[in-house]
């Protein structure tokens, strides 16, 4: 399973990076989200998969899956939510103010002028 996960994480990262490198602002945000998903899966895979029961000490399981990556990912999910929201609003504002989402047109002012 870990091997399969490693491969799919690679695919997610590839797609995410390609999206981030594109021209459209919206696609860039998509890209960051895809990369975030990839990262979350990467972290949980690093901790080892299905090595035991869920990390709840209710006496039903003898061994537990690694709780540490889960705590990390929980933090990451929430932070990712905040940054995605911020990016979205940034893009939305750029949209409504400038009427374009093409990165090539969002170039600001040349300092020489």
């Amino acid at each position: 399973m870990e091997t399969l996960m490693a491969i799919i994480i690679g695919i997610l990262f590839t797609i995410g990076v390609y999206l981030v490198l594109s021209k459209s602002l919206l696609r860039i945000i998509f890209g960051t989200s895809v990369i975030a998903h990839g990262t979350h899966l990467l972290i949980i895979t690093m901790g080892g998969l299905k090595t035991g029961g869920p990390p709840l000490l209710d006496g039903r399981a003898v061994s537990y899956t690694d709780p540490l990556p889960q705590a990390l990912i929980l933090t990451a999910i929430v932070i990712n939510f905040a940054t995605t929201a911020f990016l979205l609003v940034l893009a939305y504002r750029a949209y409504s103010a400038l009427g374009t989402e093409n990165m090539d047109h969002l170039r600001g002012i040349n300092d020489n002028e």
Partner: peptide, 12 residues
């Protein structure tokens, strides 16, 4: 505290 859940999830 003892089961799945907590501040993050509750708030969300």
């Amino acid at each position: 505290h003892h089961n799945p859940g907590g501040g993050f999830i509750g708030g969300l």
